[in-house]
Design a protein around this nucleic acid. Sequence first.
DNA 1: CACGATTATATGTCTAGACATATAAGTCAA
DNA 2: TTGACTTATATGTCTAGACATATAATCGTG
Lengths: 247, 247
Amino acid sequence: MSLASDRAKPRATEKPTLYKRIRLDIETRILTGEWPPGHRIPFEHQLMARYRCSRMTVNKALSELAQADLIERRRRAGSFVRRPQHMSAVLKIADIRAEITALGRAYGYQLIDCRRRTATSADRARLGVSTAGKVIAIACRHSADDVPFAVEDRLIDLSTVPEAATADFAREPPGSWLLHHVPWTEAEHTISAVVADARTAKALDIAVGAPCLVIDRYTWRSARTVTAVRLHYPGETHRLVARFKGG
Amino acid sequence: MSLASDRAKPRATEKPTLYKRIRLDIETRILTGEWPPGHRIPFEHQLMARYRCSRMTVNKALSELAQADLIERRRRAGSFVRRPQHMSAVLKIADIRAEITALGRAYGYQLIDCRRRTATSADRARLGVSTAGKVIAIACRHSADDVPFAVEDRLIDLSTVPEAATADFAREPPGSWLLHHVPWTEAEHTISAVVADARTAKALDIAVGAPCLVIDRYTWRSARTVTAVRLHYPGETHRLVARFKGG
DNA sequence: CACGATTATATGTCTAGACATATAAGTCAA
DNA sequence: TTGACTTATATGTCTAGACATATAATCGTG
């Protein structure tokens, strides 16, 4: 994740289509502040005249800007540059194996513990389910170039993902397995900071009391819980990077 | 065939428009897993027949799904459900004052230090600029119901935001001021964990060595640096929550 | 079999219209 | 002044075509 990089999009002499040019023109004016928040964008019929095209073409450009939340369209009134209301950052949380190999480092994986059991009340609370089905509880560690990268503590709900019972988590990390076997999921991430307890410190090879970044991820698929996972990262070496989206 | 004439006219009973219904139908099939990643979506001409509409209508539905990264469109080949490749979570990082008042708590603000100076080499490195202009350096604290919420350490580039020279940061938090005076920005957030040093511990009223969540935000506007800010949150009480977006 | 040329086809973009609908703005009466 | 009614207008959706373009498949040749 390079700093401030995806603005530069080379691609020298390419002829963009008209609606893309219209969209980019408007986007540029907004981003540079030439058209500040609240500013009314020219009406569709004015843009038709300026670009000498049909209304559907300018409509497509404006619709995409509206879908991207850059402008707001109001019937009879016109289209307006949206007022910044909150920063919403897009945080890319990759599969850990993919993340490490993408960095050009050697991925290592150690299964610490894996057991299948009937959900305890603590398990049910953590998964947010009320009935006591079977679950898999996994503890494992990810490393990059043989340096501990993160420890993982996971619970998988077998009533949602029965195929997980046959997976070999000694060989494949559960996150990667799930990513390839559960098609589309929703998730909630909670990020916090703690200091390492003895067990975490040992697994990450850091000092007890050293800071750790903790990510709790709760994943479900159409109202059914898939998995709950807690990841500890060494806080002084690991960083989460979230890219913008002003407004 | 009984629906053959439902096209052009009265039909006031149907609320959602047709293209939205098409989009929702497809989205539902993807999200439930009925159409798994890699599955080819019916061709436009098939959807035209199924929904008895023109190609532009199904095209609009599919284009929006493509813009939302839910499907991938390939010429001659068709449209395909996208394979999950990374979890990208949307992290809402509100203006701190807005965040606290939204929680129904009393917002408090204390300016600790504010000085204007010519950028030192450290300032220039932090802002990512090469020329030595004027900057404002601010340290302040936010509190909720009189409990310390976060400490802020900020640098504002006056060559990008000259108006900031006249702002009264003793009264208004710099984040809020910037949000209302700099129209559209891009930003990069870096999240990490540290343990509190003496100064931070004192400001946050926590113990030295307690975990802190650190957010570094680097903000610019069309290639010009606006501000760089570092926020320390007490890690055991503060949590960042990022909601989903599977795939 | 390998490989380049050709073809078929699904998407990409665009047009010149149409009617629907929400609503800002103006009009008029109480 | 205020509230109810009317009108004008910008966007929302849709059609039935058109040509462009990338590329998967097929075909032909060495």
